[in-house]
């Protein structure tokens, strides 16, 4: 039982959703989007837990100074993890706006016909 505010009764709504599920464009959308999101998730997990493991097993490496100054290697790496997080978010939003949204729109438009 979900919340249904679409103005269709449950049977009609169910029939509409089944029609979409059978639509090859929908199947392509789901396949593409889930491949993309799991890939991004994998990158984020690898980057973050790679960082955590580096801290756990090689603290000395992160403490090493870079460029002849005081700044240690750990600082660009740590800030880099934050920047990767923001960048991946941006990558997803861009792809979703330009790619997934039009696919969803065309499926929905055909459904309303």
């Amino acid at each position: 039982m979900g919340i249904n505010q679409s103005g269709f009764d449950a049977g009609e709504q169910s029939e509409r959703l089944a029609r979409v599920a059978a639509d090859p464009r929908y199947q392509a959308l789901v396949a593409r989007r889930s491949r993309f999101t799991w890939m991004l998730t994998g990158v984020m997990l690898a980057v973050f837990f790679g960082y955590i493991l580096l801290i756990a097993f090689n603290k000395a490496l992160l403490a090493q100074p870079i460029g002849g100054g005081t700044t240690s290697l750990g600082i660009p790496i740590g800030l880099g993890v934050i920047l990767v997080g923001i960048a991946l978010t941006g990558v997803y939003v861009r792809r979703a706006n330009s790619d997934f949204d039009p696919m969803v729109r065309s499926i929905r438009e055909d459904l309303e016909k």
């Binding site: 998730t41 973050f48 240690s72 800030l79 997080g85 978010t89």
Partner: peptide, 29 residues
């Protein structure tokens, strides 16, 4: 430096929320 470890951990949850949950939450709830 240790403070930075906290910061990164707090931040990286956000991309995960976006990739796996945010839009689905809005569509279902």
């Amino acid at each position: 430096y240790d403070g930075l470890i906290y910061s990164t951990g707090f931040l990286v949850g956000w991309p995960i929320i976006l990739f796996l949950l945010a839009e689905r939450l809005r569509n279902l709830g």
